[in-house]
C-alpha cells in the first residue's frame, strides 16, 4: 500500500494531468520530498521557507494539517492526502 495524494487542477501540470498520485513517507514533509522526486516542481508550489504555504490547504484524511502538526504531520500507508488551494481573495 501507499499514500494516495489528490492533486488539484492547478498542480496537475506536474503530474501529467493525473488527479491522484501515490507516494510514501513517514510525515507530510517526507511525502512531499518523495513526490518531488517524481514530479519535479510540485514541492515548491505547496511549501515555502516557512512551511506549508498559507493559501494551500493540505488534509490528511479528514483533517486540515494546520490543526495537526503542519508539515510534520505523520502519514501512513492507506492515508489519503488532499491538496486544495484556498479559495480566497480581497
Amino acid at each position: 500500500m501507499a499514500i494516495e495524494v489528490r492533486i488539484p487542477t492547478i498542480l496537475r501540470t506536474y503530474t501529467d494531468g493525473a488527479r491522484t498520485v501515490e507516494g510514501s513517507g513517514e510525515t507530510l514533509r517526507s511525502l512531499l520530498d518523495d513526490l518531488e522526486a517524481r514530479h519535479p516542481g510540485i514541492h515548491d508550489r505547496i511549501v515555502d521557507d516557512a512551511g506549508l504555504r498559507r493559501f494551500v490547504n493540505v488534509y490528511v484524511n479528514d483533517e486540515d494539517v494546520r490543526f495537526m502538526a503542519g508539515i510534520d504531520t505523520p502519514v501512513a500507508d492507506g492515508d489519503v492526502v488532499t491538496v486544495l488551494p484556498a479559495v480566497a481573495g480581497g
Binding site: N57, Y59, D64, L84, V87, G90
Partner: peptide
C-alpha cells in the same frame, strides 16, 4: 459559502467547508 474571514476586504472559504465542497 461562509466567508471564514468575515471581512469587508477579504474572503476565504473555511478549510473544512472547502474539503467537503470539493
Amino acid at each position: 459559502m461562509v466567508n471564514a474571514a468575515r471581512s469587508p476586504t477579504f474572503y476565504e472559504f473555511d478549510s473544512m467547508d472547502l474539503l467537503r465542497l470539493y
